[in-house]
Write a protein that binds this DNA or RNA. Structure first.
Length: 588
RNA sequence: GGGGAUGUGGUGUAGCCUGGUUUAACACACUGCCCUGUCAAGGCAGAGACCGCGGGUUCAAAUCCCGUCGUCCCCGCCA
């Protein structure tokens, strides 16, 4: 039977026509004398009606079960008076079957294909082809397709060139753990799958391909999270003869176009900007969710000489004290506050000091250590009202910022302070060049080692802590959508940065020699950005996890329950690759 | 590497804290019958789970304890 259109596309303009549609039996309502089937395909669902006049077809229809594949032919007609379904796009019409072909059958399903019932992640992934039949899942994927097409058309309109870069490259010392691929023709050597097309795209700039883009798959062999998979998709671009604002402008226009076309939302451009320092201070995060206030305040100066020895000691050692006001938090029980203490403990905080704001002043076990003056300052700085709870962390800056930042988000979510209809885009700028790695006892790149310092920064060990980078992150509703930078285009500067990062000249030459070489052959100033495409799609689809917008994701243990990847390989394959397995770990 | 949550018919959950009244409950799905306008259809009937797995405590364990495995969330990690 030749299909004339998608089920979900049948509308009133087809009334009176004879159409054929094919799809899956989504639901069956057998009324004895009349049978309704909701027939589903990728575009949606249409109601098909079996009437008892044609005994043979009706009998066949009685045997239909969920997820059978059928083709039907029949007259499209307006539904009878009073039976229109306003909740369905096809709700005004129905197909009256005159021909039925049962194309394929299906056994009982391992779970219901419904947007109303969700089963365990493991089952969903094992039967991903069934899971993906859910209308909401289909919608997510049509949306993902639309977004990627919109991105391509934006870049094409804007004069960008799409160029592919290799998957098989060389392992790099900095950054995430690489996925390695043994080289069959060179036993003992390995290719690495790209963590990002970073180096290649810079070399494309040296090659003269100003304005490159790619929707690129990237690979990182790190632990998985709701927003992190082993492989993910990145919208990658690079431009020559540009400064920060040029790149940021492109992203603003691109995102505005995507949101207009995907959600019909007008995004205000240019986006707000916030320095890294301000973000860390007020939001305790380099990806602030600005949809609600509840800002963190610093009290290190005010409480320097306070009588509370815990604070005084931390401050004396160069630590900091910051606080957060939890609206209506005074009603928290002691065990709820203990819960908060445990929560910030995950971020390294050794304790949580707190005070309840009351009509007359404040109360808690630490209030007695403070002068009235100090309490007044604290309450007024945090805009505390009677009935609020003020919490403090005292530690080094990283612990305090992270702990209070995470607490702020937790409370914001729990108290419903976040307006879900908002899309708050934000640039975080003025990033430091380097960050001290206490374990390795060396400086490491906050962004990546090819990031240009701001003009006039002295790249000396003494200035390393202060040096700022020409880097920028785009944040949406507290999610890091992407980041980029203006790159170093002078090989002397690049060498200097490697030196500060403790990457020896030999190591740099061994790992990135080709980039350093390229930079000597007339590299233009250049910069770019990379956006997490999966995160973008998840945000637009309103999903918490990127797994909901990735067709075949891995579980948190990095397994694919459907294909059972990763799997063992034959001795022969290993031998060809020159690999001897010493200890073979059994997979459960 | 660590912390937390969770695992009960095909699916989603209740029961677990406070062990016995459980012959493990409810809803959906499934099977059969009834039903000519439903649309997360309805009615009647039915089948289906030794409660993830292993061990322990106890007269008695879905329930308490220990271990283990899966899934999820988080920390570390992710330039």
């Amino acid at each position: 039977m030749k299909r004339s259109c998608y089920c979900g596309d049948v509308r009133e303009d087809s009334i009176g026509k004879e159409l054929s549609v094919s799809g899956w039996v989504h639901s069956r309502r057998d009324h004895g004398g009349v049978i309704f089937i909701d027939l589903r395909d990728r575009e949606g669902v249409v109601q098909v009606v079996f009437q008892p006049e044609n005994k043979e077809i009706f009998a066949a229809a009685e045997r239909l079960r969920s997820e059978y594949v059928i083709s039907v032919k029949g007259l499209i007609r307006h539904r009878p008076e009073g039976t229109v379904n306003p909740n369905m796009p096809t709700g005004k019409v129905e197909l009256v079957v005159s021909e039925l072909e049962i194309v394929n059958t299906a056994p009982g399903l391992p779970f219901e294909i419904s947007d109303y019932v969700y089963t365990s992640e493991e089952l969903r992934l094992k039967y991903r082809y069934l899971d993906m039949r859910r209308p909401s899942f289909q919608k997510n994927f049509l949306m993902r397709h639309k977004i990627s097409q919109e991105i391509r058309s934006f870049f094409n309109d804007d004069g960008f060139i799409e160029i592919e870069t290799p998957f098989l490259g060389k392992s790099t010392p900095e950054g995430a753990r690489d996925f390695l691929v043994p080289a069959r023709l060179h036993h003992g050597s390995f290719y690495a799958l790209p963590q990002s097309p970073q180096i290649f795209k810079q070399i494309l700039m040296v090659a003269g391909f100003d304005k490159y883009y790619q929707i690129a798959r990237c690979f990182r062999d790190e632990d998985l999270r709701a927003d992190r998979q082993l492989e993910f998709t990145q919208v990658d671009l690079e431009m020559s003869f540009v400064e920060e604002n040029d790149v940021m402008g492109v992203i603003e226009r691109m995102l505005a176009r995507i949101f207009k076309s995907a959600l019909n939302t007008d995004v205000k451009t240019p986006f707000d900007r916030m320095s890294y320092a301000e973000a860390m201070l007020k939001y305790g995060s380099d990806k602030p969710d600005t949809r609600f206030e509840m800002l963190i305040q610093d009290f290190s100066a005010e409480l320097k000489d306070c009588g509370f020895s815990v604070f005084a000691n931390v401050l004396a050692k160069g630590g900091i004290v910051r606080g957060l006001c939890i609206p209506k938090g005074a009603s928290f029980s002691r065990s709820e506050i203990d819960g908060l203490t445990k929560f910030v403990g995950e971020y390294g905080a050794k304790g949580l000091a707190w005070m309840k704001v009351t009509e007359t002043g404040s109360e808690s076990n630490i209030v007695k250590y403070f002068k009235d003056e100090e309490i007044k300052i604290i309450v007024s700085k945090l805009h505390g009202k009677a009935g609020d709870l003020i919490v403090f962390l005292a530690d080094d800056e990283k612990v305090v910022a992270q702990g209070l930042g995470a607490l702020r988000l937790k409370i914001g979510k729990e108290q419903g302070l976040i307006d879900k209809n908002k899309f708050n885009f934000l640039w975080v700028v003025d990033f430091p060049m380097f960050e001290w790695d206490a374990d390795e006892k060396r400086w490491s790149a906050l962004h990546h080692p090819f990031t240009s310092p701001k003009d006039g920064e002295a790249l000396t060990a003494e200035n390393a802590a202060k040096a700022k980078a020409k880097a920028y992150d785009v944040v949406l509703n507290g999610v890091e959508l992407g980041g980029g930078s203006v790159r170093i285009h002078k090989s002397e500067v690049q060498k200097k940065v490697f030196e500060l990062l403790g990457i020896s000249e030999e190591a740099a030459k061994e790992k990135f020699g080709f980039l350093l070489d390229a930079l000597t052959y007339g590299a233009p100033p250049h910069g770019g950005v990379a956006l997490g495409f999966d995160r973008l799609c998840a945000l637009i689809a309103g999903e918490e996890s990127i797994r909901e917008v990735i067709a075949f994701p891995k579980t948190q243990k990095a397994l694919d329950p459907m294909s059972n990847a990763p799997g063992e390989v034959s001795e022969k394959q290993l031998k060809e690759l020159g690999i001897r397995v010493v200890v073979k770990q059994a997979k459960n």
